[in-house]
Write a protein that binds this DNA or RNA. Structure first.
Lengths: 188, 188
DNA sequence: TCTCTATTTAGAAGATTATCTAAATAGAAG
DNA sequence: CTTCTATTTAGATAATCTTCTAAATAGAGA
């Protein structure tokens, strides 16, 4: 089962059981199989309402139905529950739930916000965000090449007027290094 | 924990996780603790929305929070999940979910429907319901006393015009017995 | 102290859901 | 064949939920 399918199965499962009437139905069917009419009387709901809930539970695979005369007898597929509880709640399976969301999404968002038309709208004051921006900035320079501070400032000014701060931050975060001759180069 | 509390905990649990955003948050926090802002960026939702979801998850006890400067770092209480999955899905626990609903509720409902102003609105054609009504009817007679068919009919007619059917059904279902002298008496 | 940042609270708009009544259906019973 | 019974389908209404914007709060940094 793909991660996305796993996510959706689980989501549907929680949605179906996250309802008072359906959770009661689950409890009733755990005790004994029941017809629609019996469930309606026990829950004090109308038959169409119960029928509607049963359809949702059946679609999920949680229950099944058997026809007896005019009655439809619904029963709990206990195997389904056992499988889910065993399978679902392990840490490793949980961790995959958000796979699509993780990764570079946040960094991308930060960059989209701060980099407008190839220039920095601002220097983020929060370190975590600033680091993202500085890493992007650093990547604009040639790896291995050495830049004199004057040239570096010139180039940084193309991104933001406060080139001195940018330069200092990049050194501070070990993205760039400098020697005694005021030469700078990329470390990452 | 009382049955009702158990039911409500479980219901809340399913409600909280039966939402796409919250289930994704669960997945993200299963990987790593996160601040509200990070979650908002990852999920592409506004901070207040995420904050709202986190509050629901925290109230349930599924996550907890730690303050770091201006940030609030949320993390998953994995213990909570493990306990739930182990505890909740056993057949015996499930069976107690509907305890409040079971019992006499259905019979009561049937009676409320058929008995109006102390008379029978109808004789149920479905055996299961008819039995409920007949048991109630039978209880209107003195236990131990013997009634002649004529007296019995007379009294039954006070409940429904078709006294003959009522009498036959009660014998058929072994609620009453009769002897060769057309005398009837309660069996239950 | 004053400002800035991350978060929460409040309140409103829009979507989804639960439930109902009325009508359709399919099978059972006469 | 007709009627009755249990259930489902359709459609409407009302409640609940999700999300948003705007404003309040509390702590950090300058």
């Amino acid at each position: 089962m793909s991660e996305e399918q796993h996510f959706n199965t689980l989501l549907q499962f929680f949605k179906v059981l996250g309802n008072e009437s359906r959770l009661k139905i689950l409890g009733l069917l755990a005790n004994d199989e029941r017809t629609v009419g019996e469930l309606a009387a026990l829950l004090e709901l109308r038959e169409p309402t119960v029928s509607h809930h049963l359809a949702a539970m059946k679609e999920l695979g949680l229950i099944d139905v058997r026809v007896e005369g005019n009655n439809r007898v619904y029963w709990l597929k206990t195997q389904f529950l056992e499988n889910l509880s065993r399978d679902i709640f392990s840490q490793t399976n949980l961790a995959t739930l958000a796979a699509n969301e993780a990764g570079d999404a946040w960094e991308d968002k930060v960059l989209r916000y701060y980099v407008v038309d190839g220039r920095l709208k601002d220097i983020p004051s929060k370190h975590k965000k600033r680091l993202v921006v500085l890493q992007w900035l650093c990547a604009q320079f040639e790896p291995g090449r050495r830049y004199h501070e004057l040239e570096l400032n010139e180039r940084l000014r193309a991104y933001h007027p406060d080139c001195a701060s940018l330069r200092r931050y990049m050194v501070e975060d070990r993205l760039m290094a400098r020697d005694n001759a005021n030469m700078y180069w990329r470390l990452v």
